[in-house]
Simulated assay, not measured.
Amino acid sequence: MDTGLVGRIGRVELAIDGGEVPGEALIGGAGVRESYIAYADEAIAADESVLVTEDLGDRRVRVVPWLDVDAR
């Protein structure tokens, strides 16, 4: 697993319902944004910023809400 994803900031593209129902997030790195299946303990709406807390492998990540002070 690429632990380099942990700590990266992304943006939710497809709302995450929380629990075992994933959504989709674009995670940035090295000037490129890539799409990942994203899981979270709580619901996170589309277009919200998230922080990657765990790389689950196979292009899946666990995220938490993140206040993007630069974008607000």
Rank of each mutant, 00 (worst) to 15 (best):
M1W: 10
M1H: 15
M1K: 10
M1C: 13
T3S: 14
T3I: 15
G4F: 06
G4Q: 13
G4W: 03
L5K: 00
L5T: 02
L5G: 05
V6Q: 02
V6D: 03
G7W: 05
R8P: 01
R8T: 09
R8Q: 13
R8Y: 11
I9Q: 10
I9L: 14
G10T: 04
R11F: 12
R11C: 14
V12A: 14
V12W: 04
E13D: 15
E13H: 10
L14E: 15
L14F: 12
I16L: 08
I16K: 04
I16S: 03
D17H: 08
D17W: 03
D17F: 11
G18H: 04
G18T: 03
G18K: 09
G19M: 14
G19E: 10
V21K: 12
V21S: 12
V21D: 11
P22Q: 06
G23F: 05
G23A: 08
G23S: 05
G23W: 02
L26D: 05
I27F: 00
I27P: 01
I27N: 00
G29P: 04
G29S: 10
G31I: 04
G31Q: 07
G31F: 06
V32W: 05
V32N: 02
R33V: 10
R33N: 11
R33K: 08
R33T: 12
E34W: 13
E34Y: 13
S35V: 10
S35F: 03
S35M: 09
Y36T: 03
Y36W: 13
I37H: 11
I37A: 11
A38W: 00
Y39C: 06
Y39A: 03
Y39S: 04
A40V: 04
A40K: 01
D41W: 04
E42C: 09
A43N: 03
I44C: 02
I44F: 13
A45Y: 05
A45C: 10
A45G: 11
A45T: 08
A46W: 06
A46E: 15
D47W: 12
D47M: 14
E48G: 07
S49Q: 03
S49I: 01
V50K: 08
V50C: 02
L51Q: 11
L51R: 08
V52S: 00
V52M: 05
V52G: 01
V52I: 07
V52P: 00
T53M: 07
T53A: 00
T53P: 09
T53D: 05
E54C: 05
D55W: 01
L56Q: 05
G57H: 04
G57N: 07
R60S: 07
R60W: 03
V61S: 10
V61E: 00
V61R: 01
V63Y: 00
V64S: 06
V64L: 09
P65M: 12
W66H: 13
W66D: 05
L67Q: 10
L67T: 11
L67P: 00
L67Y: 06
D68Q: 13
D70M: 15
D70G: 13
D70L: 14
D70A: 15
D70W: 11
A71W: 14
A71N: 13
A71G: 09
A71F: 11
R72I: 15
R72P: 05
